[in-house]
Design a protein around this nucleic acid. Structure first.
Lengths: 106, 106
DNA sequence: ACTTACCGTAAGTGAGTGCTTACGGAGAGC
DNA sequence: GCTCTCCGTAAGCACTCACTTACGGTAAGT
């Protein structure tokens, strides 16, 4: 599951995609409503949604001619696990640095 | 502090920079040692470090002619707060969806 | 003082990518 | 059945950005 971490982080590397995710925090939205919130065209949003879906950060449900997108709990959670590991190791690193001031001879 | 969130997320959008951060999890490293771990040139690493430092994800300490880089606890923590808010809202969103199955008439 | 090691910066290049316009398909309403 | 809405996809373009080579500057060693 962590193999998608790369895709997910890359997906987060774009401001518009982050905006899409934040917009979906308030609940599912169809593509049109989503596109209205951003200064780019609807196809652009569609392409971003494809990237986000490929990274397992969003899912869609077809409702008639509409595509309602929502956050993907699994992907979000796997991303959380990735960061949790990072925080844990980072804290360990900081702690170690404090305990071992500068006893390096090289 | 959250104003740097954009810079930080953008910084995480590159695989090499993520690799640098992960390498620094094991402790501080000079630029040269850092560059040896990646298939790119040393100047490329320097440029990545500049981006990371601008995003407050790393700091450097000059030791003679060496520049020893390490993770920046403050930036890392502010990033963690950003994600924590995201998880919280995401969970609330998922929960709300469950409680309100599909009572939408539109 | 001269050389060597370590590193940042500048300039230039190529590939990736985010955007637009144009198009086609599928479902809902009259 | 026809139209209209909603949306994905294709093609093309411009811009960003990651990378390289070249250069200069500083500190340590002899």
């Amino acid at each position: 599951m962590s193999a998608y971490g790369e895709l997910q982080l890359d997906a987060l590397g774009d401001a518009t995609r982050r905006g899409i995710l934040e917009a979906l925090l308030s609940g599912p939205l169809p593509v049109g409503k989503l596109a209205d919130r951003f200064p780019v065209s609807r196809p652009a949003i569609s392409q971003h949604l494809r990237v986000l879906e490929r990274a397992q950060l969003v899912t869609h449900r077809t409702s008639g001619t509409r595509r309602v997108y929502r956050l993907d709990p699994e992907g979000i959670d796997s991303l959380r696990e990735y960061f949790d590991r990072f925080w844990t190791q980072a804290l360990a690193s900081f702690k170690q640095k404090v305990e071992e001031p500068s006893a390096n001879g090289d």
